[in-house]
Simulated assay, not measured.
Amino acid sequence: MTELAQSLPPSTSASTGVETRAQALDAALRTASPAEVVAAALREVGRDQLALVSSFGTESAALLKVMADVDPAIPVVFLDTGWLFEETLAYRDTLTNVLGLRDVRSIKPLDADLDRDDAARELWFSDPDKCCLIRKVEPLKRALAPFDGWINGRKRFQGGARADIPVVEADGKRLKFNPFANITPTDIAAIYATAKLPQHPLLASGFLSVGCMPCTSRAETGEDARAGRWRGRGKTECGIHTIKTS
């Protein structure tokens, strides 16, 4: 047994609160490597109860590579909002094949929600928060319903609401693991280089962070990578990380 595994608290029991468990795991994993965090998440909740949520964006391949090296059969949830770039959909398929991912689940918004709230497909302009709610937040809640824990790719260096994220946190009734919380841009570049990972097709065109087409623009020289998301709206998050999933 490794020194890290020995330092981890015992697995969660039914009587242990998620918040308490998250705090204990965060303390144990605070300086752990991304692979160690993924392995700990797998140990904690089991493969059938763990999902990784990925946008298949410009930095997504790094975390997906780390996960695949631990267990490529961990379910991967991809939110297909109906507004994604064709390049992103193609990149999803490319990475699935390159990394040997065995369980990628593409989740779409409900037709009933779109017909009721966005029949004209202009909600992204009139109410982007509601657009994100029906196209991302609600679909993610449905997708995560079977799971007790999930993994995401947020990083502290992205700033804003992400600057102080822990390695493990409570998300309603689920544990939420942030394996890349402590990682740097240099670390991500090294993962891409070492594994010879393909880049997102739009990165070379100046799209440093890629979301839905209407709300994504190129980042200017010297801007933060996420400056091109919801430009000019004072909006920095879609809601999946600021609204509890359960």
Rank of each mutant, 00 (worst) to 15 (best):
R105S: 08
E122H: 11
A40D: 01
F78T: 00
D111T: 12
E44N: 11
D117N: 14
I134L: 14
K136M: 10
V77K: 00
D103R: 03
V66R: 05
A68Y: 02
E59T: 13
G57Q: 12
V45T: 12
D111G: 08
V37C: 04
P128L: 04
I74T: 06
V37G: 00
L50I: 07
L95R: 03
F125H: 15
L63I: 06
S55V: 01
A62M: 10
A119K: 13
E87V: 12
D113C: 05
K65R: 15
S60Y: 03
K136D: 04
L101Y: 09
G57V: 07
G100C: 12
A68I: 03
M67A: 14
L101E: 05
A40W: 00
A73H: 12
L110W: 05
A120F: 03
V38P: 01
Q49W: 10
K108Y: 07
V66H: 03
D111Y: 03
A68E: 03
M67C: 14
R135M: 03
N97P: 00
E86N: 14
A119N: 06
R102E: 15
V137F: 02
A39L: 06
D103W: 00
L101F: 11
S126Y: 11
P75W: 00
L79R: 08
R135Y: 09
E36D: 15
D115P: 00
A51N: 06
P75I: 01
F78D: 00
D111C: 02
T88G: 10
D93K: 14
R116N: 09
R121Y: 09
G57K: 07
L123N: 03
A51K: 01
